[in-house]
């Protein structure tokens, strides 16, 4: 899932200070699962905003809405009848959702309430760890299911480097060495020969915005153009 964290309250407050009617828009998928931007957090953030404006003579009005996913136009449509009542939108979705909300309602300023941090896993309630950088060319087949791009400080495709230190990374003793872990995993699976193969360099095309069309849907997309 995509993991995000709430922005500092002051930053959120400052970004919307010129607006009198703000709709806080939550997203019911990834950011809800990581307890950052679902319906509960929408309620909590708007309560905080209301409290911070209590002393003001004319406090702003805060509305609340949560859609299933802000990365789908169909779900964004569900708030079309109410967005007109507001002069700013405060999105609690990931960066993709925030942009899609802004694209769907281009006439209204949209502000982010969260920082999108990584693609990660859920270790326990409220505890997430990064596992993927969305680099666009997955090496996990060769590396025993451990991502060197994410887990190695140098994102080495052919490691380890000289800084590996008895299972730890040279940058920090608490940071495991990705290539040590890869070696251990492959060794356990009897696939250690994988580590001797040269892993080709990554295709860094993903430095420009990418589009993915699933092969089975190419004709559908073509016909709708």
């Amino acid at each position: 899932m995509i993991v995000a964290e709430r922005k500092p309250f002051d930053e959120i407050k400052e970004s919307i200070q010129d607006y009198k009617k703000v709709l806080v828009v939550g997203c019911g998928t990834c950011v809800a699962v990581c307890l950052t931007g679902g319906e509960k957090e929408v309620g909590v953030l708007s309560a905080e905003l209301k409290l911070s404006q209590k002393a003001e003579s004319a406090p702003a009005v805060f509305g609340e809405a949560t859609v299933q996913r802000q990365c789908d136009f169909e779900f964004l449509d569900e708030i079309k009848d109410i967005v007109g009542e507001y002069d700013a939108l405060l999105s609690m979705a990931c960066g993709a959702g925030i942009q899609f909300l802004a694209e769907r309602y281009p006439e209204i300023p949209v502000f982010p309430a969260v920082d999108t941090t990584f693609i990660g896993v859920n270790k326990d309630v409220g505890w997430y760890e990064e596992r993927c950088r969305a680099c666009g060319s997955c090496a996990l087949a060769m590396t025993g299911g451990i991502c060197p791009v994410t887990m190695c400080a140098k994102s080495l495709f052919n490691g380890p480097c000289g800084g590996t230190n008895q299972g730890s990374c040279e940058i920090n003793k608490d940071q495991p060495c990705a290539w040590y872990m890869i070696h251990e995993r492959l060794s356990k699976q009897g696939r250690l020969d994988n580590i001797m193969k040269i892993c080709p360099p990554n295709d860094w095309r993903n430095q420009t915005p990418q589009t993915l069309i699933q092969p089975g849907y190419e004709e559908r997309i073509e016909s709708s153009k």
Partner: peptide, 12 residues
Amino acid sequence: CGICASECPMDA
């Protein structure tokens, strides 16, 4: 007890 209800991020 309602612990789940108060923790649910979607108020579901």
